[in-house]
Design a binder for these strands. Structure first.
Lengths: 125, 125
DNA sequence: ATAATATATGAGCAGTTGTTCATACGTTGA
DNA sequence: TCAACGTATGAACAACTGCTCATATATTAT
């Protein structure tokens, strides 16, 4: 570790660091997730980070339903449901189709169910 | 749908709703995720809902590393990394072990990798 | 056209979050 | 015991979030 006694390219912010795993850091530096990817992933999870939205999605796991169905099952105002459905739609988590006056919402794809299931598994351990 | 013309138990917030799927709502009402579960799931995803934390976790997918390794790979201050690691630890997403002066952080369990992978898949479509 | 129904949306506000700065804590070597 | 290093933590502040309220939009029936 003698070479760490002087400031080096790999370790510019301090002079030495006993715990540093230079090999690992070098290897990962190129493979790191990009800023853009990290941003989109975090935005995706942000859409899942609210209790009301989680409850809405668990409703929709049971099948497509209109806004007033969701409103009843989740027990919040129509406005609140609608605002949250918008967030979920923008994140690509739900889709909808119109039938008469009603809009029927449903889970967008299988990734959503997978993430919810994995999340539920994680908390029950 | 004649019975919907009057206010009913299943539909207390309005008099009628053509789009309503009474059967589905009845069936799901008992099976709904509890408030407590929804809260914990949303808290879990909240921990994944920040760009810096996502980047930290993707670092750790490459193997355990100390705080200064993460600091270098992610490119934020030591304090910021430390604060975010605390959030991740409280959510059960990472664990650590001490070795000398350094703390080595790593992914807590396979659920974390699964959620990150599924999230990454979802955004690249 | 008009009214009623189902849903969406903008503004505003209280509560929350992520960062920085300063400082404290825990470990090691001299 | 003391200094240096690696890491954690509390306070403070700007930015963001989710709700409510009021209102707008889209569809259907009369």
């Amino acid at each position: 570790m003698e070479e760490n006694k002087e400031q080096c390219f790999e370790c510019p912010h301090h002079l030495e660091c006993g715990g540093k795993n230079i090999e690992l850091v070098k290897r990962l530096a190129d493979k790191m997730i990009t800023e853009e990817e990290a941003y989109f992933v975090s935005e995706l999870f942000k859409a899942l980070s609210d209790m009301t939205r989680v409850r809405i999605l668990f409703c929709l796991l049971g099948g497509e339903m209109c806004v007033c169905d969701i409103q009843e099952l989740v027990g919040v105002t129509q406005s609140a449901v609608s605002h949250q459905l918008r967030t979920l739609k923008q994140a690509g988590l739900v889709k909808y189709r119109r039938e008469g006056k009603s809009l029927y919402y449903s889970i967008a794809d299988s990734h959503v169910s997978t993430m919810l299931a994995t999340g539920l598994e994680h908390i029950s351990e």
